[in-house]
């Protein structure tokens, strides 16, 4: 065990002991305001095996994860090519950018009413809102990344006889990749943020729905359980994306 893992482990133990001390230990904090470790554990046990708010913890996580992945991936599949074209071709940039500047300041959550009117109170409306929120960072960062591709590298490719297809795949894409991945990370974060908000409005399953139900029941233990579940699910997807990035941008990892 190295030094930083040890420090991390000690921090976790200290925080945990403080938590117990302030709640169950001394009773300084009312469990109605913040749960004790025991309360947290029993809420976790309940939602894990018996289920809560229409499903077990894994069912809620799976439902939310599914919506996030569909919304996020759709946004990436549509947003990256659009951002690429905007950065690559001045005419497309001139045409699309004004529309974008107009739509960009609208908070993604402001799309919820329209989404419900268009798609109803189902998964599609939530996926749509997630899509909208993940779309913007995907487009903007790809666009910026492609726009800032080093001109001398493009020229170096052209003077060595590269076709336009090769210039795109061997210069534009690798040179803009770090920026594109920054956009993907922001998109993923936005997806989770939006998901929870979208599920708060009306859902039959999902972490946002569980959180909303726990709030109505004034069950602080369950509120904390769902919050932690959201954090963990979000972290796992972020780590997975990080692995994809490392595989794609190998030349930076080999120092």
């Amino acid at each position: 065990m190295n030094r930083s893992t040890l420090t991390g482990a000690i921090t976790v133990v200290v925080v945990f002991m403080l938590w117990w001390l302030l709640t169950s230990g001394t009773g300084l904090i009312n469990p109605l305001r913040f749960p004790s470790p025991e309360g947290f554990a029993s809420a976790l046990g309940r939602i894990w095996s018996d289920g809560y708010a229409g499903g077990t913890l894994m069912e809620h996580i799976w439902q939310s994860l599914r919506l996030v992945l569909i919304g996020f991936l759709t946004a990436v599949v549509v947003g990256m090519p659009l951002g690429f074209l905007m950065g690559y071709d001045r005419r497309i940039e001139a045409f699309v950018n004004p529309i974008f500047l107009l739509l960009r300041p609208i908070p993604p959550l402001a799309w919820i009413p329209l989404a419900i009117v268009w798609f109803g109170l189902n998964d599609a409306s939530k996926v749509f809102v997630i899509f909208v929120s993940a779309f913007v960072p995907s487009v903007i960062n790809t666009y910026t990344g492609v726009r800032n591709v080093r001109k001398t590298l493009i020229e170096a490719a052209r003077v060595h006889g590269a076709t336009e297809a090769r210039v795109i795949s061997e210069v534009y894409l690798p040179d803009s990749a770090p920026m594109i991945f920054t956009g993907l990370r922001l998109s993923l974060q936005a997806s989770w943020t939006t998901l929870v908000a979208a599920e708060l409005v009306g859902a039959f399953l999902g972490l946002g729905r569980a959180l909303q139900t726990a709030y109505r029941d004034v069950n602080t233990s369950m509120i904390l359980v769902t919050m932690v579940a959201i954090a963990i699910a979000g972290a796992i997807t972020t780590i997975l994306l990080g692995h994809v990035e490392k595989r794609v941008i190998r030349w930076r990892a080999t120092t």
């Binding site: 020229e155 006889g161 590269a162 090769r166 210069v171 690798p174």
Partner: peptide, 25 residues
């Protein structure tokens, strides 16, 4: 072929891949 002041090698390509870039064209 042009040799640039700032080298303009492709940072994501190895020495081998850089050298053969124009040959592949």
């Amino acid at each position: 072929a042009v040799v640039f002041q700032q080298f303009a090698l492709f940072p994501w390509k190895t020495v081998r891949e850089n050298i053969v870039f124009g040959m592949r064209s």
